[in-house]
Design a protein around this nucleic acid. Structure first.
Lengths: 236, 236
DNA sequence: TAAGATTTAAAACCCATGTTTAAGACTGTT
DNA sequence: AACAGTCTTAAACATGGGTTTTAAATCTTA
């Protein structure tokens, strides 16, 4: 009955002929958007197939079941993921502060243009609030490396080891400031109707987060005299 | 057929006899927890009634439907909400910086002891990621006042009007730093296994967020000489 | 206690949604 | 053309889960 479900998952010719978008590809594309918007639970496969123009049975034929499709979406997210955007920022050979600003900017960009294949992040947010069964593994694969590099970057700025508690707390502070725009977007919009996520506005926000964070990070840079004046005003 | 659904919602004697927990009360209690954990969509009324020990039909009898129950939960959240915790912190007659720290601490507390009737916040988080139909109204009623007061508080610190863009961005920075622990808790736990949300740890985190934020806020305090030294290091 | 209202209980209903089936269409091969 | 794979399609199936019904139980009031 339930052993070896005999899922007809063909050895799909690796990376597709790329000529015309195959049903399989169209499904993943559509699924990415829908999952990102509604999350796993609230998404119906019927909406996905409707959006992709495919037949209802296609998802089962190609991916076994809904969870299979979702897994594939996540994996593609991980693989081709625009972790690149972050990574390229991190790889740049520049002053650490500039790199931090670049990372913030890169991540915040995805808020402005949510059409773009940047549902990756939004899917992760859904995962945070409502983890799905076998997926925390995949999520982990994409989150951990970025987290690690962020720790290194910030550790570099405040001159502490990456795994030091203070380093982590600072990383969380930066992450949090970005997160609030990614996931509280609709709410903020209500609280602050004039808020429009135009590219310029996003830039201003990114700049603010950079300023806000660096104010503390510079202050904590104990040794190096980046700060001409540093009165230890009772922190710790 | 569908007009005037004749929902048998009795004029439930206002605030219940309080003697033995009525079915109605037990339902709201249980629903709060379940909704907070899974969100509206993923929650089944069967799980709620199972947890509350009530019968499946009870939710329909008392609240009309699932959404009615959810609405009631949100409203109770708003009314009795531990907005008090925040408000009492805000009301305190103390230096603004201390108030800010108190607010941060109060909000962060709810993370440490998630058993307590503090699913309020978690429900709101679910609303952020996946707004439900008629509820943004209720959410709005609880969020807006707090947001407003936070703006006033921070505006007071950096000596700018509450609705100034910079004031808002700073408020969002503070909110974000707290949010990340509320909703990314599970993920952070994976990235940083040693992280234990003990009261002491929460205190440390709260202190960090205060330090982190005040570093910038003090720096931005333009006029008042709270800072003996202030080199304008190229912000804006 | 009888009559009426209110509340609870068990079962049934019904639809949305994930999944499967079985037949048809397309493609390449001999 | 005939065959064998691969893919697509329409329809049906099965079940989870919100809702409704109906009757019994409990409480209220006279």
């Amino acid at each position: 009955m339930l052993p070896s479900k005999q899922i007809r998952r063909q050895t799909h010719r690796v990376a597709a002929p790329s000529a015309t978008a195959s049903t399989r590809e169209k499904l993943v594309e559509a699924a990415g958007h829908v999952f990102a918007e509604h999350g796993y639970q609230a998404t119906t496969v019927r909406e996905i197939v409707k959006r992709s123009g495919a037949n209802i049975a296609a998802v089962n034929y190609h991916f076994g079941d809904k969870l299979g499709l979702y897994t594939e979406v996540l994996q593609q997210s991980v693989r081709a993921a625009r972790v690149d955007a972050i990574n390229s920022a991190l790889d740049r050979n520049a002053p650490l502060e500039d790199i931090l600003r670049a990372v913030i900017g890169a991540r915040l960009q995805s808020v402005a243009k949510p059409n773009l294949p940047d549902w990756h992040f939004r899917i992760m947010v859904h995962e945070l609030v409502q983890p799905t069964p076998a997926l925390s593994r995949v999520v982990n694969e994409v989150s951990r490396p970025i987290y690690k590099r962020l720790l290194e970057l910030i550790g570099g700025i405040i001159d502490l080891p990456p795994k030091h508690e203070k380093t982590r707390l600072c990383a969380h502070s930066v992450m949090g400031q970005i997160l609030v725009y990614v996931l509280a977007g609709p709410l903020l919009k209500q609280l602050w109707p004039e808020l429009e996520m135009t590219p310029e506005q996003v830039d201003r926000i990114a700049k603010h987060i950079g300023d806000f964070s660096l104010a503390y990070l510079r202050q904590e840079t104990s040794g190096v005299g980046k700060l001409p004046c540093k009165t230890n005003r009772g922190n710790k």
